[in-house]
């Protein structure tokens, strides 16, 4: 199970492959003037790759709109109005064997989490941290890769900064439901439409969403998705190669397990 994770992590560090190619060149053509510059370039590359470095595995549908091409370890993200979206963010790392923590969300539905592909064996729930939210979250950040939480209403800016430093130090990512200062990106469901429900008949089957990711600078990207893209994006290896921003109904409809073979009439 680890090879895909390792592949995904190495993918976003192109500097290493570049440096590997330049290694032999150093030996064969040791021009004294270019050597320091070359080394400096390599150092810069490696430093750069460490600063906004490690990308956690992310559902492809969301990786396209997130800054940096996916969840960054050490990053913090906020999700405005959708628990499902937060679950989709958790699902990527969890499916690759990472531990996830959920703090202060008694209404978190583990059954839905399982549908998103979150491994329940590695999901830690602390539904009621009470007044010790910060301590608990910091302790969880130490041991798990992704923490999902609802931010408390009042948190001192110093505490926020300390938590952010802890995240960066431990290489964990934090996802908050609700607003969170200094988040790297704010995701939200801008538009949503359900299929399968009439007036008095049918049942909810599929959901089409417009998801926006807003950068702190104000720049935003959006994607049109089906709920199934979030749920099965990581399980299906072909899902990663879907053309960006597609989500046309016919492409998501075909043979999707979300669609129940029999209708339930009431």
């Amino acid at each position: 199970m680890t090879p895909p994770a390792a592949g995904a992590l190495e993918q976003d560090e192109p500097s290493f492959s570049g440096s590997g190619a330049s290694g032999p060149r150093l030996v064969t053509a040791p021009s004294p003037g270019s050597l320091p510059a070359d080394l400096q370039q390599r150092i810069n590359q490696m430093q750069a790759s460490r600063l906004d470095s490690k990308r956690l595995p992310t559902v492809p549908a969301l990786a396209r709109i997130l800054p940096g091409g996916g969840l960054q370890s050490g990053g913090s993200y906020s999700v405005r109005n959708s628990a499902a979206l937060a679950m989709a963010l958790l699902a990527g790392p969890s499916a690759q064997g990472a531990w996830c923590g959920v703090v202060g969300l008694p209404e978190f539905s583990v059954e839905a989490a399982r549908e998103f592909g979150i491994n329940l064996d590695r999901l830690i729930l602390v539904p009621a941290p009470g007044a010790q939210w910060l301590t608990v979250t910091a302790a969880l950040v130490d041991v798990v890769s992704v923490v999902l939480t609802r931010a408390p209403e009042h948190l001192a800016p110093t505490d926020t900064a300390r938590l952010k430093a802890r995240l960066r130090q431990r290489g964990a990512a934090m996802i908050t439901l609700g607003s969170w200062q200094q988040s790297d990106s704010t995701l939200g469901v801008a538009e949503s439409a359900w299929e399968g429900l009439g007036s008095g008949r049918g049942h909810l089957r599929a959901r089409r969403m417009k998801i926006t990711a807003t950068h702190p600078s104000g720049r935003s990207r959006h994607a049109y998705l089906w709920l199934a893209d979030l749920q099965h994006g990581l399980r299906d290896p072909a899902g990663g190669h879907l053309p960006a921003g597609d989500g046309t109904p016919d492409s998501a409809d075909g043979g999707d397990p979300l669609f129940w073979p029999t209708l339930m009439n009431s």
Partner: peptide, 17 residues
């Protein structure tokens, strides 16, 4: 780490499902 949280909040506060 989880045992530390349990010692803060109590045994039943850290859950798996």
């Amino acid at each position: 780490g989880l045992a530390r949280i349990q010692s803060m909040l109590g045994h039943g506060a850290v859950l798996t499902a």
